[in-house]
């Protein structure tokens, strides 16, 4: 008997096949399968196709349980770009794959740990939206830092 396959759809409408017994490492998918057998396509409206491909790669290459910790660490280490890791963390949140989410978040924290204020803004494309008054309020609050 051939193994049952599920189809996942990314937000840009690309389809990905994955064997059900691997896909159910995601608690979200496991619950769907339990509820209705998940015969049709499972849409993932917040996950783009590149990220979904990574998640599928992660799910497909699962190791023996005792090697799992090292594997997931290596997996996120190899994808050291902050935007990739954030996408991965969000996909892992939506799909409820705790280990992957923890590892991706930890890696991002590690990366931004040594960044300056400007580097953080640049890496995450965040604009400083604070008014001069707010800047002053923070300075007053934390005079020790200046």
């Amino acid at each position: 008997m051939s193994k049952k396959t599920l189809t996942l759809m990314s937000k840009d409408k690309q389809l990905f096949n994955i064997e059900e017994h691997l896909a159910v490492q995601s608690v979200t998918i496991r619950n769907m399968v339990k509820e209705d057998g998940a015969s049709s396509v499972i849409p993932l409206p917040r996950v783009d196709s590149e990220t979904l491909a990574l998640v599928i790669e992660y799910l497909n290459r699962q190791q023996a349980p005792e090697e799992d910790e090292d594997y997931v660490k290596k997996f996120v280490d190899e994808r050291g770009e902050i935007p990739t890791l954030l996408e991965l963390a969000q996909a892992a949140l939506d799909l409820d794959i705790k280990k992957l989410m923890d590892a991706a978040c930890m890696k991002v924290a590690d990366l931004i740990k040594d960044f300056t204020l400007e580097e953080v803004r640049e890496a995450l494309r965040i604009e400083n939206d604070r008014t001069p008054e707010e800047e002053k309020a923070i300075r007053d609050e934390f005079q020790w830092a200046f």
């Binding site: 840009d12 783009d48 196709s49 590149e50 990220t51 770009e81 935007p83 990739t84 954030l86 494309r125």
Partner: peptide, 16 residues
């Protein structure tokens, strides 16, 4: 950026 895909313009301006 590794996650930026040509077919997905939204990721270029993704608001984190």
């Amino acid at each position: 950026m590794a996650s930026t895909s040509a077919g997905d313009p939204s990721s270029e301006s993704r608001n984190w």
